[in-house]
Amino acid sequence: MSVAAGPIGSAESAFDRRRRRMGGVFAVLCAAATLVGVAALGVLLVDVVIDGLPRLDRAFLTSFASRIPERAGVKAALVGSVWTLSLTALIAFPVSVAAAIYLEEYAPRSWVTKAIQTNIANLAGVPSIVYGILGLALFVRTLGFERSILSGALTLSLLIMPVIIMAAQEAIRAVPSTIREAAYGLGATRWQVVSSQVVPMALPGILTGTILALSRAVGETAPLIMVGAVGFIAFTPRGVMDEFTVLPLQIYSWISRPQEEFRRLAAAGIIVLLALLLTMNAVAIILRNRAQRHS
């Protein structure tokens, strides 16, 4: 093995040049891939904004749907989405987190637990329409909740719970075992360890996972159609048992109309939906930062 002598850079070989070139090529490829994704997104956004922004005004946000495009608005769908989302969060979050805590901290390492874990992972991949069918049969018909926000929220909860559970489990697993050891070593019970150390530390991760799941839920259309959300609603819901519609559905129904004007309405609706999503994500980031700062 010969040892290079002399200042750095004085003994470059063909091998060095080649590997340096490969590195450069690879970096350029990665940048190009990123650019493609960003560009595609940009083009879509620009297109939507150009189409929809002119139509976006106060009247649009406060009017109900109508057969006359000039008078149509997104109020019912927006309020419906917010109601549905809130109820879904209320149902899915505690149940999922509790399930994740149980699976990670309490469940014995047996084949039963493993089977449950595998099945949850499978459920996360089931197409949403299947949840729609399930919701129709279980909530709408059997339990008699009919076509209501409650049915919709329950169906969406089932849909996103596997995702939240897996994300929460990851977050809980990421809490270092040394923290648990230290807490146990001080004479804490399992519940004390979980509630005062593990969950607070895992909270940022859990919240992030939850918000991501809810973001998915906000855009779901098919299961809600199955469960009875309708395209033409002229009132805002007053209770969870009321009929309802949601933004994606409204957008879909507008797109299906032949008139040009409805296309612009749809674009405006998309902007509202995106704004809702951005708000949710902002809330998620704020909550996560708050939780992280407290630790």
Partner: peptide
């Protein structure tokens, strides 16, 4: 333990944890 493993809390809360949970 071998590696120092304080809780992600304040110094006070670290020391107070044991008495509180017990």
């Amino acid at each position: 333990f071998q590696k120092p493993n304080p809780f992600p809390k304040s110094i006070y809360d670290n020391v107070a944890f044991g008495p509180r949970v017990n």
